[in-house]
Amino acid sequence: MNWESASHFWAMGGYGFFVWTSYGVTAAVIAFELIALSRRMKRARAQVKRDVALDRIESEKRGRA
């Protein structure tokens, strides 16, 4: 085991700032990408559903007329 205690672990031998900013920003960027992806997927599906619904209304109108 490399670390005597949790505080030793967070200090990273004095390089804590550099190590944790690196890991933190990487995690943040990846989290951002995942959120953006899931939002994009949802938006795309919603768009298709809207299109289908609009088409149904159109065709119903045409059927009535």
């Binding site: 997927m41 795309a44 599906r45 298709v48 559903k49 289908v52």
Partner: peptide, 22 residues
């Protein structure tokens, strides 16, 4: 994931996407 989103976006007027989504 992104390629799936792109497929839905680009082919959203095709039958297979509409069926799939609904």
């Amino acid at each position: 994931v992104r390629v799936r989103a792109i497929m839905i976006e680009r082919e959203r007027s095709t039958d297979w996407v509409r069926k799939l989504v609904s």
